[in-house]
Every structure is written in C-alpha cells, then in structure tokens.
Design a binder for these strands. Structure first.
Length: 269
DNA sequence: GGGTGATGCTGAG
DNA sequence: TCAGCCTCACCCC
C-alpha cells in the first residue's frame, strides 16, 4: 500500500521498533538479498529517512539501505522476533524492541551516500518533508505539457503521490484530471500543494488514506472511516458523489485508472 | 484451486 | 506504448 505516507510512517515506526545506534540482526530468508544483508548484519542504524516513496536507512558504518516498495512491496512490523519468515521474506531486521519483515520490494539495495543523493536529486518536493515546497512544485508543474492527472504521478513534480492521492487531491481541489498542467491557475496549483500537505500528514498519522470530511458522511472522525467510506472518488465509479450525488466517472490518464466527479470537477473549456 | 488486479516503475521496442 | 517484475488479497469455481 505504498504512497508517501507509508514510507514516512514506516521510517518513524521502524526507528522506534529497531532502535537507533544499537546493532541489528539482518538476514534474507528468501536469499535474494543475502549479500546485502551480510554487509549490514551486526551494524547499527543512525537514521531512517523517507523521501517520497523511497526509504534510506543510514548505517553507522556509512552504507545506505535503499528500499522502494513498488506496487506490491510490504513491510510487517512485529514485536520481539515475530513469526517464522516465509519463502517470500526478502529482508529481516531484528533490533531492540522488535523485527521488521520486508516482502516484494521493487528496490532493496545497499548503496553509498553519493548514490542516495543521485536518487533524491531526481525527486520533486515531498509534502511530508517540508510544507514549504509549494514554489518548487509550481515550477516543476509548469514545465510539464501533460494533463495534471499525469503530472501528479510524476515523482519529479511532487514526490510521494500515487494513484489514490492523485484522484482524491484533484477532487478536493475541484480540478478535472485532464486539465493541462499549463492551464492551471496559480490558485489551483497552490491549493493542490496545500491539500497534499494536509492529506499526506493525516494519512501518515492514521496509516491509511482517508480523505473524506467526516461530516459529509455523518461520521465522528476520519479514523472511524475505512476504504469503503473514507474516499471521495477512488474506485467509486457508478456511485453517487458524496457532495452532489452525480455519478462518479472512471477514466484512464497516464495508463492508470482515475475517478472524478463530472460536476465537482468540471472538464476544462 | 486458479485467475486477476493492485496505492509502481523500468526498459525494450 | 506496453510487457515485465514482485507478492498477495480477493474473487470465482
């Protein structure tokens, strides 16, 4: 379930669970990361940093573990030793208070700080790292001659947005996914950034993407909502818009499915 | 038990 | 543009 909120939340929770500056037991039950695990085993972590959908684990001996979950990668956090790893467990890190399992990542490599810097240099501003990336976001967006629905998935424009957030952010800002990036007003661009900061922070805290204002669905809190009830448009084609009851429409933008409300997000002229 | 799609991205063509 | 990759939850039989 990897958009930016997942990486930041994991960086925070895993640092707590594993403990910093104490030696970790690292291994690769599946074997596909045996060489990397051997480099890290017995060493201590200095910090865990998330940047967009990328995670960088800084080890005291100077190496960096680079993880990107991709579409299907998953972490499991367990107190103590956790269960027996399965044949798909790529990485196990056991520390002070618990154990982290990793399965199915797109990237799991040991790199050096220069290589880390190269990866980060390609990324746009990450709303969870600093709320003050709005100007850079606007600059990057302005260089793109593509629909805003495609630009939001481009990690060099904004880092950490995935398919759920792009649909929800465009709904929350009333922008049609096919609006050309270059046709957005300054106010719309600013609203997209501001809304990203807000929504990603909430998702990082809750551990799930819940964008619905609880009073729109008669709920007490966002935390009481779930994937069925907690989004405005994502995977809701054919269902009534929570605001105006117009039927939510499914389209494809940048080869990925995207949903919008034709009334709340009018097609650009 | 098999088939499929998924919150992602790359590299070949 | 599109197949390929990685894993698993979910659906249908």
């Amino acid at each position: 379930m990897p958009e930016g909120h997942v990486t930041h939340r994991n960086a925070r929770l895993q640092a707590d669970l594993l403990g910093l500056n104490g030696p970790l037991d690292v291994n690769s039950p599946q074997g596909r990361f045996s060489d990397g695990a051997a480099l890290l085993d017995g060493h201590a972590l200095e910090s865990i940093e998330a940047y967009g959908k990328h995670m960088f684990y800084h080890w005291t001996m100077g190496q960096v573990l680079h993880i990107h979950l991709g579409l299907i990668g998953k972490f499991q956090l367990h107190p103590g030793d956790g269960p027996t790893p399965t044949e798909n467990t790529r990485l196990v890190m056991k520390g002070q208070d618990g154990t982290v399992f990793l399965a199915g990542p797109m990237i799991c490599n040991v790199i050096n700080p220069d290589e880390e810097a190269t990866v980060i240099a390609k990324l746009g501003p990450d709303p969870l790292r600093s709320a003050r990336g709005g100007r850079k976001f606007a600059e990057r967006l302005a260089t793109k001659r593509i629909p805003v629905g495609a630009a939001l998935l481009d990690q060099s424009v904004m880092a950490g947005i995935g398919n759920v957030f792009r649909a929800e952010l465009l709904f929350l800002t009333g922008i049609h996914p096919n609006t050309p990036s270059s046709a957005l007003t300054d106010a719309q661009t600013a609203a997209l950034w501001k809304q990203s900061v807000t929504e990603l922070r909430i998702a990082e805290e809750i551990g799930d993407i819940i964008t619905v204002n609880p009073r729109h669905v008669g709920a007490r809190s966002r935390k009481s909502l779930n994937r069925e009830t907690g989004v405005y448009v994502y995977k809701r084609d054919g269902l009534p818009c929570r605001i105006c009851e117009t039927e939510i429409v499914l389209e494809e933008v940048a080869s990925r499915k995207i949903w919008h409300c034709p009334r709340c997000q009018p097609r650009p002229a």
